[in-house]
């Protein structure tokens, strides 16, 4: 790791970085890496299941919406291990911002059943499942989701 990259991380942090092609299916790589890490950090099974779903939703959003299925574009997943929490950040390279209203809306199943587009549950699920969630713009311009899950001992 170069000095530039270490500058932002505390000594007690460990970072694993994954760079994935924007192709549906590869979100599984991030899900399995995150779940394997969480298991070894001591998270319980239901928390790991929640994490997997949240990671999957974040990465598929990045593939589908941020990078528009352009396989030459990368989805970058950072897994930051701290003593008491795991931080997952998912960044795409897309120029298309996520609509602010979309980020905060609460979907409704009866409404969804009336509409052709029955999707849109991803961001809501992430918010429900993770302890902290933040949607920002990455320095490079892409969308970034930062999710935190706390380790309760």
């Amino acid at each position: 790791m170069s000095n530039e990259e270490t500058a932002g991380s505390k000594p007690s942090e460990k970072v694993i970085e994954l760079r994935l092609p924007s192709r549906l299916g590869y979100e599984r790589v991030a899900m399995d890496a995150a779940s394997s890490l969480a298991r070894r950090m001591g998270f319980e099974g239901d928390r790991i299941a929640a994490l997997k779903t949240a990671v999957s939703e974040a990465v598929t959003n990045a593939i589908e919406h941020g990078n528009q299925h352009n396989e030459t574009m990368k989805v970058v997943v950072l897994l930051t291990v701290r003593d008491d929490e795991l931080i997952v950040s998912v960044t795409d390279q897309g120029s298309k911002s996520i609509d602010e209203a979309y980020v905060s809306r609460v979907p409704n199943i009866s409404e969804a059943m009336q509409k052709d587009d029955k999707g849109g549950w991803g961001i809501w699920l992430i918010r429900e499942l993770m302890d902290e969630v933040e949607f920002t713009k990455a320095p490079g311009g892409g969308n970034q989701v930062r999710m935190v899950i706390h380790l309760e001992r």
Binding site: M1, K14, V15, I16, E17, L18, R19, L20, P21, R23, Y26, V29, A33, E71
Partner: peptide, 9 residues
């Protein structure tokens, strides 16, 4: 080509 990169401690 599908490329995946991983960096870890």
């Amino acid at each position: 080509q599908h490329i995946i990169e991983i960096s870890f401690p």
